[in-house]
Amino acid sequence: MEQRITTPITSEVTSNLSAGDYCYITGYIYVARDAAHKRMDEALNKGEELPIPIENETIYYMGPSPAREGRPIGSAGPTTASRMDKYAPRLLDLGLKAMIGKGKRTKEVIDAVVRNNAVYFAAVGGAGALLSKCIKSSEVICYDDLGAEAIRKLYVEDFPVIVVVDSRGNNLYETAIKEFASL
């Protein structure tokens, strides 16, 4: 099924998403990858506040290439989500609603998705030029010393993603492969 959704994403929306749905996201989303997740985790360990709001928000696992003059961003496709698996359950328990990345997740992450009625989307890996066209603005909001790994806030319009893990724990990576396997 095709769906258009806007951020922030509520539980009502995630309840209606199923693994395999093709979605177009519009609204603000945050960008963070390994180094930023590590810092957010350390901040939480020290009892500090997170540098971004987390309730019902979306994190896109991505590290863009530099923007040319007059453009908001460079190439901007997803990075491998499993490197964030260590940190994701904690953020989901704090209210994070959606993650966008590519590749498999651990059982701990999938359990946390179900527990929090959240969602894991995949964007097409290696389509960074195409995806950059849906990004209308990009602003580094913290950890700018991390360069391509800084936390950014993006405004996206009709950003194409596919539901891989839905709030019931269905996992498209497992079901779809079975459907087409013939070995």
Binding site: G63, S65, S75, G125, G128
Partner: peptide
Amino acid sequence: MIPICQDT
């Protein structure tokens, strides 16, 4: 002139 993939 946008790199094919951001991981260059």
